[in-house]
Amino acid sequence: MIMRFIYQLGSPPYFYALSGRLLPWLSGLCFILFAAGLYGGLVLAPADYQQGDSFRIIYIHVPAAWMSLFVYMIMAFSGAMALIWRIKIAEIILINSAHIGAVFTFLALVTGSIWGKPMWGTWWVWDARLTSELLLLFLYLGIIALYSAIDDKRKAARAVAILALVGVVNIPIIHYSVEWWSTLHQGPTVTKFDKPSIDTRMLIPLLLMAFAYKFLYAIVVLLRARNDLLWRERRSQWVATLFSKEGA
């Protein structure tokens, strides 16, 4: 049953039709999550007792940083699937995640810098957390550049999959960097095993924003993957049928 679903998902026309039906629902949910998260984060949550209202940057910065790691893990996982089983959809998910992954990483770095100025007194320090996150941005950009440099897109996808898998070593380094090395960056407040050390009124909007970001990621990947698929399969029967149905 599950294998059949995965097999079907690997078929381009099925993936194209299913994602087309999913997108309006994903967009609606994403919008609601953003609205609730922003209202909770900007209006309902109280100001921080140390950082005042500047802490509200957390609702942009932390989910972006989480997503920068999450998207990379999805890419590495798709890369493994693409290398082992040669699933075309896995290649497409891999390469079309790179742009939005880079966007999340860029946003985490810049908003972190904006937050660092009033709180730490500096825009940037070359500590382990910031440097390894910057390295992650270069990994994303390297993946995008490598993919566009190779003309044969199946070959390009294999090269990119290998690069994505090698880059995985950076992920635990980023995550544990604040514990392994001394730094200006604060330690984790949410992803601890005991009770999170953050007020519930601050925590709930953060989780809402984190889910909103996940939906946003899904929407962007599907939009890009559909374009990619349409172009790769432009000479296939299902694309021709699709366009004749639309009354081209």
């Binding site: 005042g52 209202d53 509200r56 937050w115 009033p118």
Partner: peptide, 8 residues
Amino acid sequence: MGGYAGYV
């Protein structure tokens, strides 16, 4: 934003 308008 408690004086942090530009940053936030």
